[in-house]
Design a protein around this nucleic acid. Structure first.
Lengths: 266, 266
DNA sequence: GGCTAAATCTCGTGC
DNA sequence: GCACGAGGTTTAGCC
């Protein structure tokens, strides 16, 4: 990694360095005393204080305060980043075109600028996502303690997509809504919407709605029961164990079948 | 701002510097070649590559790749940050207790460490939020072209909170759901939920549901009309003008009051 | 601490 | 390019 550190320059000199670094799509860090204005979908102002500015190679633009996870101001991807010295201040403008938004930094002092060549081609692998859980249950519905035949994944119905759709051992239609986190009223409502839509489109009354989640809020459970829907608890630890097992087996077999596509094509 | 820059140290020396800086709640930046594992609500692995690590004064922990707005891994607030040198690697563990999550960084190389004393006490003022729009309409319902008397803000009903609640000129109950961005089916659904709940709790059928938003998706509008609900377009620019005006008047009044106090104290 | 909903949400995916 | 939904969402507000 090629890293350059700049300290003790004049604002004009910093401007030169920053302008060149950004033009060359380097990664840039700026430690600065500044105020910030934002104007776009919303609007904000931030008084003077000490912050870290990160400008990424794709011109993502982040302003971080000394505390907290979130940047105080940002631009997910800027179309223009402009540096000017005006009235004793280094003014940085990060502009985004769609939606039209602008972040303006007014730096009275720059303590440090770091310019780095960075390369990162590594693969990011995430697991235990809702997708993965969904496909696992589709392959093996007994996980949720039901004798089901899953016939569709992400089945489109009027108000959206049903996570899992199938038939139980009594030939009743089953609509499943899946959450990988605590289910709230929103989730109950989503399920209810789908059940109503399926009932209507099929002209059948014997449609079961099952909410599958690791946990559910008390009021959501009450709401769900009042609507005649069901809740099945999901054991995430067990699921992860099964997924781990499958992954091992899969990497041995090296099978590349896409379950979603498989179901779609039927 | 007191800034210290470290380069060319051994991993063991870096460990010392980082350990001390974090213990003293300094802001820390690390440019490093590393791999990352995450295990908690979800799980992920990331192969070796060049990244920026930010450790904030409150032990928020962010790992950024050279591109994109989002950190690839993070800890909103760590309870423990631990540094060890193991097998030629600097291993950084950031642990969060609730929920139990752990991010593990394995650094094969450190290019730069920056340790900074940073102070930022400035106020962050955000405007044109849903709150502000809500309160403005509450004060002046004619903005949405209706003769309304608003009687409640954020009225709690069974499934959640009604943004604005009131009575129209024909004595019909009005439930208003507000969005500051394009309204989707989700918003329609939210409104529908509230209208159903209010109808039920009052035993009245003459309850109007109005979705107020700057725009609405086509399918959401169809859905809304099918449910017998209404949509009112919001002119954000006009709203912002009014808010600006009000703010000016308010600050004049405020400074006037301060002036009054000032004179009283003499 | 639980619950509810907003967010300059961002990001991926499908049409 | 829009629409829709997930997210390790995070954050704020209220009880």
């Amino acid at each position: 990694m090629n890293v350059r550190v700049y300290q003790g320059l004049s604002l004009g000199e910093y401007r030169e360095v920053l302008e060149k670094a950004v033009r060359e799509h380097k990664l840039v860090l700026v430690l600065t005393t500044c105020s910030v204005d934002y104007e776009g979908r919303g609007a904000s102002t931030l008084g003077e204080g000490e912050r870290v500015i990160i400008i990424k190679r794709d011109w993502a633009f982040l302003i971080h305060r000394p505390n907290g996870y979130s940047p105080v101001n940002w631009q997910p991807q800027s179309s223009v980043i402009d540096f000017e010295v005006e009235g004793g201040l280094l003014v940085i403008k990060a502009v985004r075109s769609r939606p039209r938004e602008i972040v303006t930094v007014r730096a009275s002092d720059v303590s440090l600028v770091v310019v780095a060549d960075m390369s990162d081609k590594a693969e990011f692998v995430e697991y235990v996502s809702e997708h993965e859980i969904r496909d696992l249950i589709a392959r093996n519905p007994s996980i949720i303690g039901e004798e089901l035949k899953i016939t569709s994944i992400e089945k489109p119905v009027e108000p959206g997509f049903v996570d899992l759709y199938g038939i139980d051992s009594n030939n009743r239609i089953v609509v499943i809504e899946l959450k990988r986190v605590t289910a709230t009223k929103e989730a109950v409502n989503q399920l209810h919407r789908y059940v109503v839509a399926v009932k209507k489109s099929l002209g059948r009354r014997d449609v079961r709605g099952i909410l599958v989640a690791p946990s559910i809020t008390k009021s959501a459970l009450e709401y769900l029961e009042r609507l005649g829907l069901e809740y099945k608890q999901l054991n995430l630890k067990q699921l992860r164990r099964i997924l781990e097992e499958e992954k091992k087996t899969k990497s041995e077999k090296k099978s590349g079948a896409n379950l979603l596509e498989f179901f779609r094509k039927r």
